[in-house]
């Protein structure tokens, strides 16, 4: 596949003929097959699918956390297949944020220390100021020094969201960000996520099984049988 230099500039993620197979005992298990995806700067894309469809595997591949069995994959115009794990890590540094279903906060670190963590990987002076601002932005200005176990689930996820955006990344991956939260709290988190996404012009890849959430994205893709298919948008918000 060829593409113009303009496309290169705006393209954040590009996957073609992407495949992932794993061995399960003697048997080879095909998780993803001939998958194609193109995500442009500033887009928000939802990937939906049932449990076990391979959503998390795809997210791991797209974020460069894992390597594909076959196919092409590019992030920020760099082919991930030519990079080793350290090279992929260097590509992510400061440019990719994550929000996880289980928050992934470090239990011995306070809220602000958790947010500071990705900033500390790059030499900069304003780590504490920036982290505090970010936590204030998510409404946790009064809980800076609390440990994760002293925070509610919603508060913990807000810390995680703050951590994802603190580096002003080009791309944010969110893996079932409301999976562990009740409906009301979940909705608040989602509002926050989209607000921040809009404010910072970040590209967002959201993996979820929640169609209502998925519909808030610019595009919605369904993972089924190892491939992605576009989901038609219904004018009244009813699923196709």
């Amino acid at each position: 596949m060829t593409y113009s230099s303009d496309e290169r500039k705006t393209r954040i993620l590009y996957a073609n003929e992407l495949g992932k197979r794993v061995m399960s005992g003697e048997r080879e298990l095909v998780i993803l097959e001939s998958l194609a995806l193109n995500v442009d700067r500033g887009e928000s894309v939802a990937i939906v699918g049932s449990s076990g469809a391979g959503k998390s595997t795809l997210l791991g591949l797209l974020a460069g956390l894992d390597s594909p069995s076959s196919g092409e994959l590019e992030m920020f115009g760099h082919s991930l297949s030519t990079l080793d794990e350290d090279g992929r890590a260097a590509l992510r540094a400061g440019r990719v944020g994550f929000v996880f279903q289980n928050f992934q906060l470090l239990p011995t670190l306070t809220a602000i220390e958790n947010v500071m963590l990705p900033l500390e990987l790059s030499p900069r002076q304003d780590v504490a100021v920036k982290s505090r601002q970010c936590l204030e932005r998510v409404g946790l200005g009064a809980r800076l020094d609390h440990l994760p176990k002293q925070l509610s689930g919603g508060e913990q996820q807000r810390v995680a969201v703050a951590r994802a955006f603190v580096t002003e990344p080009d791309l944010v991956f969110a893996d079932e960000p409301t999976g562990n939260l009740d409906e009301t709290t979940g909705k608040r988190i989602i509002d926050l996520l989209f607000d921040l996404n809009r404010e910072s012009g970040t590209t967002l890849i959201l993996v979820t099984h929640d169609m209502a959430l998925a519909r808030r994205c610019d595009r919605c893709l369904q993972l089924e049988g190892g491939r992605l298919q576009a989901v038609e948008r219904q004018p009244h918000g009813v699923e196709a």
């Binding site: 974020a63 956390l65 794990e85 350290d86 890590a89 260097a90 590509l91 992510r92 540094a93 400061g94 440019r95 990719v96 994550f98 992934q104 470090l106 011995t108 963590l117 990705p118 990987l121 580096t167």
Partner: peptide, 19 residues
């Protein structure tokens, strides 16, 4: 054991093995 999560997160955030 306790730092495996930290290490994985730092890898996510872009730290190399050497770092």
């Amino acid at each position: 054991d306790r730092h495996l999560d930290t290490a994985a997160l730092l890898r996510c955030f872009g730290a190399s093995q050497r770092q």
